[in-house]
Design a protein around this nucleic acid. Structure first.
Lengths: 203, 203
DNA sequence: CCTACCGATCGGTAGG
DNA sequence: CCTACCGATCGGTAGG
């Protein structure tokens, strides 16, 4: 008599599964996800877990989608209202660094880990990782171009070069934090990002 | 009657296993290594494979050790004879980039992948990865300091900052090559490395 | 959402 | 180096 409530409950269960999957995959990788472990963590049956997704691959894709949403919420949403250009580009860098320090993903940046894990494997997970990076790249390059147009950065600035360097520095920061626990790394990354954008010692 | 030959044959088998393990782990990760798959690839029994190592973890350590040796051979050995300082530092960067393009590791830089895979797990594999990075960091920083001492770089140059940026750029290059197949990335990395070292448009 | 089950594979051992 | 085997776990399905 209450199919709506049943559907809502099912959605809630699904969200719990995805949240747990994100946490597990963040430390053990998307391939390290297992249906049995998830079921145990959530006190459910394996059939109850996999029933929401059909296959392990679709569960991986759901976890990846959620991780991308978290990244967007932490890095893009806080700066989205700023005007396009240098101001927002600098805010992006700071939000990016803050995100990597935030600990939302217990095992460090989910997207970076997924990109390394799937860079040699074909399939929809890899494709989604690539699309996620491309989307983020487009956003960053857009602000670089806006800054150049507004005369805030030299006309010779190459947006693709800036993106390459900022992304590399973010990945390097993630490694320094997760692998080495290097507390100096955020400041180093910030300094290097400022320089990559084309600012001198300014900040 | 020929224990020497038998021991030599065993060593050869062990080396074959390690070589195969490096190739598999480079695409599927060190956790993706399985004894059964290795046995199948080499037309051996699982017991024959694991007998050389005892446990899977020691097999992972052996593969990691070999990967570090390959990195050293490809990046350090070619420049080792150069005098310490700016010249060798620039040669290191070029050898590093060439190594990432070389395809020795079918799945991309083994050390980078291992550092992401194990950055959230305790144990000897993680410790060995950290030690490998620390050793390489020491070598790079040594040449930065030598270049400063020789007046080839500004006295204010911070070796740890240079290392942080060069390492980040190498990891970013690996991602660009493996995930995106970006052919412009090596030139971008080279340019950014030159700048990170403190050179202007020079090269 | 559950129980019960499938064949395959996991890391590893015994014994030779 | 092999065969033969251990208990545990894998992804997934049948049927309810």
């Amino acid at each position: 008599m209450s199919p709506r409530r049943s559907a809502a409950a099912a959605l809630e269960t699904r969200e719990e599964i995805v949240a747990r999957a994100v946490a597990v995959a963040s430390t053990d990788g998307l391939e390290g996800l297992t249906i049995g472990r998830l079921a145990g963590d959530l006190s459910m049956s394996k059939a109850g877990v996999i029933g929401h997704f059909g296959t392990k691959e679709r569960l991986q894709l759901a976890a990846l989608e959620e991780a991308i949403a978290i990244f967007t919420r932490e890095v893009w949403t806080p700066v989205a209202e700023l005007p396009a250009g240098l101001e927002r580009l600098l805010a992006i860098c700071d939000a990016w660094i803050a995100h990597l320090q935030s600990g939302v993903f217990p095992g460090g940046c989910f997207l970076t880990a997924a990109s390394m894990e799937f860079d040699g494997r074909a399939g929809p997970v890899r494709e989604r990782v690539i699309a996620g990076f491309e989307q983020w790249r487009a956003a960053v390059e857009r602000d670089v171009r806006a800054a150049v147009k507004a005369g805030q950065l030299p006309a010779a600035t190459d947006p693709a070069q800036v993106w390459f360097e900022l992304n590399a520095l973010a990945i390097g920061l993630n490694q320094a934090l997760q692998l080495l626990g290097d507390d100096d790394a955020p400041a180093r990354a910030r300094r290097a990002m400022r320089r990559a954008i084309g600012l001198g010692a300014a900040g």
